[in-house]
């Protein structure tokens, strides 16, 4: 019954099939993290602004995104973006746009919690020094908030890396697809999925250990 044969996994095969996918998964994770944080900060500031015309759009966007499965969001963008811009786009570009928009909702919640974790006194002290809202945010609140929420953000990034496998739904070529394609081609799908599991596990587990270390190191003690 145990008839496994990993011999087809040589370096040539890995560089042909897996590396291309790994590269896409990695780039997608990085762009979505950076884009998600920028857009997420904006959404978080809108929600905390106490101005209804800013609060409501952000609230609807964030809660809407968070109540829809990521696969459906991926399908929506793949369907809508070509309709809106009037020409077909590739699955890869569609995936990048989707992940930025989707992750922004999750990052905005993390950032909002981070900003709210800063004591009111800090904001008041900034105001007492004559800082404007923007200066106060940039120089006092956000640097402390980001430091507090860095571990949660990195954990979200690890989840994001795992979620990139869902581009399967629109046929984009990520790492999982790389393993799958190789497995099909060599008639060894069982081994391909097993090896994929090992690779994902090693990457995600080591990253989460790193995050835990970092968490202990940088937490601001109050």
């Amino acid at each position: 019954m145990l008839d496994l044969d990993f011999s087809f996994y040589n370096w040539a095969m890995i560089s042909d099939f897996v590396l291309k996918g790994f590269y896409f998964s990695l780039v997608l994770t990085l762009i979505a993290t950076l884009g998600g944080i920028v857009l997420g900060t904006l959404l978080a500031l809108m929600r905390l602004s106490e101005k209804p015309f800013l609060v409501w759009p952000a609230l609807v966007y964030v809660n809407g995104m968070r109540s829809i499965p990521l696969v459906m969001v991926i399908l929506w963008f793949f369907l809508l973006v070509p309709l809106i811009i009037g020409q077909p786009i590739g699955a890869e570009i569609s995936a990048v746009v989707t992940f930025i928009a989707f992750e922004a909702a999750y990052f905005s919640e993390i950032i909002r919690a981070g900003i709210q974790s800063i004591p009111r006194g800090q904001v008041m002290a900034g105001e007492a020094l004559g800082m404007t809202y923007a200066q106060n945010m940039r120089l006092v609140v956000l640097p402390q908030a980001f430091r507090n929420m860095l571990p949660v953000m990195l954990t979200q990034t690890i989840i994001l890396f795992q979620d990139t496998s869902l581009v399967y739904a629109i046929g984009a070529y990520d790492m999982l697809k790389g393993f799958e394609t190789a497995g099909k081609l060599f008639g060894r799908p069982v081994e391909a999925y097993l090896l994929a599991a090992v690779v994902y596990f090693v990457i995600c587990y080591s990253l989460s250990r790193l995050v835990r270390r970092l968490h202990q190191k940088i937490a601001i003690i109050r």
């Binding site: 019954m1 145990l2 795992q162 979620d163 496998s165 869902l166 399967y168 999982l176 799958e180 799908p189 069982v190 999925y193 097993l194 994929a196 599991a197 994902y200 596990f201 995600c204 587990y205 989460s208």
Partner: peptide, 24 residues
């Protein structure tokens, strides 16, 4: 750690393609 660090989609493939092959 095992079930947290492997993407859900891959876990579904493992249950669907791999485990039945290993455990008939």
């Amino acid at each position: 750690e095992l079930f947290r660090n492997i993407p859900l989609l891959l876990q579904i493939f493992l249950w669907y393609h791999v485990i039945p092959a290993l455990v008939p």
